[in-house]
């Protein structure tokens, strides 16, 4: 497995997200209030909204289009909603955020 650097922790505002463009689509990288980081496919399972643009609260993000709430950890819709979005493992080396390229390749496949 090879890790690719995608940025620094401080590049992402707390309770915010940034996008990473990959050959197969956009990934949203989230940072919570407690500095946990998560990566999700930037596509809401409901109507494809960009999750990276949502409000981050606790360990979840609310899609900006129709308020579906997605767990950052599991990628599953929370509450009464159903749906699932792909997650990607991240590693934090000091301040540096790394993503496993193998998981991206799997996306491409």
């Amino acid at each position: 497995m090879s890790l690719i650097e995608i940025g620094k922790l401080s590049d992402i505002p707390r309770q915010g997200a940034r996008c990473v463009i990959t050959p197969t689509g956009r990934i949203a990288v989230f940072r919570t209030a407690e500095d946990h980081i998560f990566a999700l496919e930037d596509r809401c399972p409901h109507k494809g909204g960009p999750l990276s643009q949502g409000i981050v609260h606790g360990g979840a993000v609310t899609c900006p289009l129709h308020n579906m709430v997605i767990s950052l950890e599991s990628g599953h819709a929370m509450g009464a909603d159903e749906g699932w979005v792909r997650t990607f493992p991240l590693e934090l080396d000091g301040e540096t955020i790394l993503i496993d390229s193998a998981s991206l390749a799997a996306l491409a496949a």
């Binding site: 995608i6 590049d11 990473v20 463009i21 990959t22 050959p23 197969t24 390229s101 390749a105």
Partner: peptide, 17 residues
Amino acid sequence: KHEFMPMATIGLAQAAE
């Protein structure tokens, strides 16, 4: 500025490594 720019762009070659 961060609001409007992607944090990173990963090329095809990198992703396929």
